[in-house]
Design a protein around this nucleic acid. Structure first.
Length: 242
DNA sequence: GCGACAG
DNA sequence: ATCTTGTCGC
């Protein structure tokens, strides 16, 4: 039974120029201090494409926190209607993400989104956009850099270097594993950089990417066989305890 | 003008 | 993002 309904705040069938204007207007509402409660459920959000990019597929995986067990997952498919333009990623991917949100049976307390938060030319990356529209604390977790400068990160799990842009700290280059390339973390909405780093580390176990992201990625890739197995295993344990 | 450029 | 097998290394 769906538990979320997202209010439309602006159109999506817009020109790149209009999209930039929307970003500039909405970025004023982004909160980069901690405005979150207890975290019981963390969501991983990822997007993939099908049929020569004509279909956008969004996946959301909900994990219990801090156990990181998969407790819910949804997939939504929508026709793609915006091109990939660096800086305007959310206008291509978010419509499908919102459709997925409306299918969720559990409301997440924190979102880990593939892509940037405020580490964006207009401080309004996809994690900020999703966090604001859903009014849920959100963190941008990107595998590569969009903007900003940084110095080399110490080669040790948990170490990080500030990501700066025009004299401001907009994020962190975070080493989630020793000897592995770092991730680019930035607040999306209703969370500080320090707290964002804390939750990303808490969601990362033995791989480079957080478990939330890994589940969402598997879902967005279409390989659902082991996902169903994990859900069944979980359900079976619940029944066993009753 | 030239280079950079999340997914 | 996506097209895709084997393969190098811990």
């Amino acid at each position: 039974m769906p538990v979320m309904k997202i209010q439309a705040r602006h159109p999506w069938n817009v020109t790149p120029q209009e999209a930039i204007a929307i970003q500039k207007a909405l970025c004023a509402e982004i909160i980069t201090s901690d405005a979150l409660g207890q975290v019981h459920y963390v969501a991983g959000i990822d997007v993939g494409f099908e049929a020569s990019n004509t279909i956008t597929r969004a996946a959301i995986a909900i994990l219990s926190f801090p156990e990181l067990k998969l407790v819910d997952h949804v997939i939504a498919r929508l026709p793609t209607q915006f091109p990939y333009v660096p800086g305007l990623l959310s206008f291509r991917e978010v419509p499908a993400v919102l459709a997925a949100f409306e299918k969720l049976n559990i409301q997440p307390d924190l979102l880990l989104v593939d892509g940037q938060g405020i580490a964006h030319p207009r401080r309004f990356g996809i994690a900020s956009h999703i966090g604001l529209l859903c009014d849920i604390p959100a963190i941008g977790v990107a595998k590569t850099r969009l903007i900003g400068e940084f110095s080399e990160v110490p080669n040790k799990r948990g170490a990080w270097s500030p990501l700066t842009y025009k004299g401001e700290i907009i994020g962190a280059v975070l080493r989630t594993r020793t000897d592995i390339n770092p991730l680019y973390i930035s607040p999306g909405h209703r969370i500080s950089l320090q707290t964002a780093i804390h939750y990303v580390m808490a969601c990362t176990t033995k791989f480079r990417l957080p478990e939330t992201t890994r589940w969402a990625h598997r879902l967005a890739s279409g390989k659902e066989s082991d996902i169903q197995r994990a859900l069944m295993k979980n359900a079976t344990q619940k029944i066993f305890l009753q």
